[in-house]
């Protein structure tokens, strides 16, 4: 048995963990068909860990859904497979490539894979008949997220209406749905980027290797460092060089930039995050840069 808490003090990280576990259990108890949206990124890995803890020693009582853009980092897919195998959960892969082939989404050559994920995701939710989908969104990430509920209601088109959000009080969540609607659930809403790293460090859990410093052939585009890849044809004037970098976020590799860094351990990453002067999305996500309200617009359409 672990030692007695004589002062009955719970650190903020333990409080966040307790709150998230409460949310996972609440959803598993009240929704017919939940699913966990797993990207392989650090936030969704923390979600997996919390779900593991919430139901232990039972298995996680819902499947895991990944939207495969076709442009995912191989290191991320490897980590995904390790997690899914260790926990013995069912993995559903919704492929953007297949969605394009089946005419579910239209690739006009101008729309990013990130944006094409929306239609692919909504189709997978509808096809699976899922009534609740866990997402790894955090309120510290972005202004529109700062106002989103833990239980975020989506209409039958998968849309989010920021003005019609249900009040959310105490730890009482309202999971009522009509036919065809679903709920997005954000169990780590109150976590910050630093909390995520502290937790990964404390738990000693596996994350994709690209979060740690490594040598990579990269080029600069729109002020971001992107990975050399067959999916990333060079434009005129762009040149590839090898640099010591790491990724702060994980997504579609044509849009996800890296930062120069020598941080090769969790502690070094934490030191780096603690003094970072730019938000992780601002630094490395091309998809959030197009307008001040980019995230709000994508969320209304049904983004994660």
């Amino acid at each position: 048995m672990t030692q007695t808490h004589t002062d009955y003090r719970l650190s903020q990280l333990d409080q966040l963990e307790a709150e998230s576990i409460h949310i996972f259990r609440e959803v598993a108890a009240e929704f017919e068909k939940p699913v966990l949206m797993f990207s392989g990124g650090k936030d969704s890995i923390v979600m997996m860990r919390l779900a593991e803890k919430a139901f232990y020693p039972a298995k996680i009582p819902f499947p895991v859904l990944q939207v495969d853009t076709g442009y995912d980092f191989p290191e991320v897919l490897a980590t995904r497979d390790n997690w899914v195998n260790r926990l013995g959960v069912r993995l559903i892969v919704a492929s953007v490539e297949e969605a394009i082939r089946d005419g579910i989404v239209i690739d006009d050559g101008k729309t990013s894979r990130n944006r094409l994920q929306i239609g692919t995701l909504l189709n997978a939710i509808e096809e699976g008949g899922f009534t609740a989908a866990f997402g790894g969104g955090r309120r510290d990430e972005e202004k529109a997220r700062a106002k989103e509920r833990v239980y975020s209601h989506r209409d039958e088109f998968g849309q989010w209406d920021p003005k019609m959000q249900r009040p959310e009080l105490w730890s009482l969540y309202n999971g009522r749905l009509h036919e065809g609607e679903h709920m997005r659930i954000f169990p780590i809403s109150n976590w910050t980027e630093l909390d995520i790293w502290d937790y990964i460090g404390r738990e000693g859990i596996e994350i994709p290797s690209i979060y740690f410093s490594h040598q990579r052939r990269v080029f600069e585009r729109d002020g971001m460092l992107l990975s050399e890849s067959e999916h990333n044809p060079l434009r005129s004037g762009e040149t590839v060089e090898e640099r010591t970098i790491r990724f702060r976020t994980v997504g579609d590799l044509t849009l996800t930039g890296c930062v120069e860094s020598t941080a090769s351990t969790i502690d070094e990453i934490i030191d780096e995050v603690a003094v970072a002067r730019v938000t992780e999305r601002g630094a490395t996500r091309g998809d959030d840069r197009f307008s001040e309200a980019a995230m709000e617009d994508r969320k209304k359409e049904g983004y994660f």
């Binding site: 106002k147 920021p162 959000q165």
Partner: peptide
Amino acid sequence: TDGLRSEREQGITIDVAYRYFA
């Protein structure tokens, strides 16, 4: 702190916004 476009247009806060600092 005024995160939603509708709020920015109207120049008022209409919802609860959560902020984090340490």
